[in-house]
Design a protein around this nucleic acid. Structure first.
Lengths: 374, 374
DNA sequence: CTGAAAGCGCTTACAG
DNA sequence: CTGAAAGCGCTTACAG
């Protein structure tokens, strides 16, 4: 019938897209030349290039990245797995990863994982898209899949969650040091009954933060802190706080493994137990997510340098893509204790400002006006 | 030399992936059969299927979705453009979109847009991936691109932002009705000096919320509210609040076009102006993002049913993909006023609970304990 | 049920 | 600089 339908095999399906072939026909040249016009380095005579560009414009031609991926065996797609989107630190991380990746001309294939669960189920699908690399943010990939990635030569970098696998790159904050600094800060503040509210137990962030905290207390000859588990969840932290604060030996210093949990505890302490923060209870968080700075909380928190982490992670991934087989690194991004009003501050002589990485006096913002932290 | 490198054209590049051809060879069958084994509906004899599956397992074969996309002219990829990730409503939306899309076996190609800016720059790249559809959340696509999408037959649905283009599907909350309900609520609460803090001026959310609010006031014979602009930004809202609250005729009722701005205003009112909320100033937000429920804010806010919106948007997109050319719809997801403690509550006789969609008495949570909202 | 083959839309070595 | 052609890894009509 019509020569238009020359394709023998195809019939239904979405309408034909305009291809390089179409452009070539209109410009009176070959498909190869059209391709060259759209390939950055290729040599095409100015006149021909002009004609091709014009034809492409007329037809609304856009090179097909899918076909390109197939030919080049490079998709310029990076998979990003992320959980905990309710903790503002992650949306911020996602935004920065996106910006950095877009700048390098990579696209993001996003998959979200549930909190505790592994990223495996969707991962299988994602791998089929032949992504050039994988960024795992606070999610675990079962070691089985991690092995497959390595076998398939797909670079992986884990963000904010170290894996057991020494072959996998990771970018994390300085969790242990942060935990220790918080212990020292609270110790210097004269607190006596310490408590720790844990995040997800088997996460490296939790493990390292707690280890640092316990080590800091131990170094001062204190007993390990009392302990509850909030699994990085606001609601669970609220429940845990009710238990912790109802104890006869109520803690006077509480370190929560992330900010949302710290805010949850602060709310419970203030509104359910009528405690004054920090006079009767000091609370310290971790990550310095946006709400930590809101005056009602004025949360003292260890900073996670999300911008630096995103940059490091994307850099590490691109490096691996360019140069496969590079030995894995564990990148630790420094942070510092950002002192606000939610924890009693030590007298200046007991707490040399420079004892904590980068804590310049100017950074220690003034307490919110009286009444802010009732 | 080696027959392994039989490819004439290709040489460098990433190592060869295992293909259906490889599996076929090992299983002693044809590539077509391997393909059939991995195509849901296809008929293959049990014995052969078994052999193929076994060979695939041995080789770690995974069908290549990129190649599949090229053949089928369907990528099973949906582009999601999103901005305002610092407003928790959006991460929540993203998570739900992701879940819904993953359930339908679609992947998300994410691109983030800056607040004010249009999504155009990255959009060009994204279109090259031949996405099956586009979900725009609170971002504008220049009408030029929108037209191109239509021409290219790519379904688009706009979430939380209506476009001028009547051919584009949209899913929004009931912004105008929400604004009006808030006016009526504040009126019934006996307030006299109304103010409105605007979001991004040219966004439909802002326009509709303000229109509803002004209409509600006008219906009661009141003057238009005083007004400032916060552009949906926390920091800008803080600045705007300082101006608004310093006016000699300080408002006693302030409606902010989203929750982050409402929280910013609440903080400024309380901590910088020493105002008691809601006794001296009532504040109402919009969207009911997670922090609105935190006791320190107890923000009265119009709910955005993010779950319903995500479901509707994905449903609308999939419907368009299945059946192109369906006439566009504008889907409006109902919300309701969630009354908490940040705004003075009207006496029961002036504020029939059912005047606002779905506001059941049980939903009106008690005020936080004394001291919560000092 | 099974296999050979065309075609999806590109890139790029090869030979002018 | 330019074009013809092979090949990337699939799906599926066609002919057994």
């Amino acid at each position: 019938m019509g020569s238009q339908t020359g394709s023998t095999t195809r019939s239904a399906g979405p309408r034909r897209r305009v291809s390089a072939e179409d452009v070539a026909r209109l410009a009176g040249t070959s498909q190869s030349t059209v391709s060259r016009v759209f390939s950055p380095g290729a040599a095409v005579s100015p006149a021909l290039r002009q004609r091709v560009l014009e034809a492409a414009r007329q037809l609304g031609y856009r090179p097909d990245a899918i076909a390109r991926s197939l030919t080049l065996r490079r998709s310029r797609i990076v998979a990003v797995a992320m959980a905990h989107l309710d903790n503002l630190v992650y949306p911020e991380l996602l935004e920065r990863l996106s910006t950095a990746l877009q700048a390098a001309d990579y696209q993001i294939l996003l998959f979200t994982a549930d909190k505790g669960s592994t990223a495996d189920p969707v991962f299988e699908q994602v791998m089929r898209y032949r992504v050039d690399g994988i960024l795992l943010a606070s999610t675990t990939l079962s070691s089985c899949f991690a092995g497959e990635c390595r076998a398939a030569g797909v670079p992986v970098v884990s963000i904010n969650r170290a894996t057991d696998d020494p072959a996998i790159w990771s970018v994390t904050g300085d969790n242990e040091r942060g935990g220790r600094a918080i212990a020292e800060f609270l110790l210097a503040g004269g607190h006596r009954r310490f408590a720790y509210l844990a995040g997800i137990e088997d996460s490296s962030t939790n493990r390292d933060r707690e280890r640092g905290f316990a080590a800091g207390l131990a170094a001062a000859g204190r007993e390990p802190p009392s302990r509850a588990v909030g699994n990085y969840s606001f609601a669970e932290a609220q429940r845990a706080a009710r238990t912790l604060l109802a104890r006869p030996d109520r803690p006077d210093a509480l370190f929560c493994a992330n900010d949302p949990m710290a805010i949850a505890c602060l709310e419970v302490a203030r509104h359910e137990f009528g405690l004054r923060v920090p006079e009767e209870l000091s609370i310290v968080g971790f990550d310095d997510a946006a709400p930590a700075a809101w005056p009602s909380y004025a949360l003292t928190s260890w900073t996670l340098d999300v911008a630096a982490m995103a940059e490091a992670a994307v850099g590490a991934l691109l490096a691996q893509i360019e140069e496969p087989g590079r030995p894995a690194q564990r990148i630790v991004v420094p942070g510092r204790l950002l002192v606000r009003g939610s924890a009693r501050r030590p007298p200046p002589d007991l707490w040399p400002q420079d004892a904590v990485d980068g804590l310049a006096p100017a950074e220690a913002r003034p307490l919110a006006p009286a009444g802010a932290v009732p």
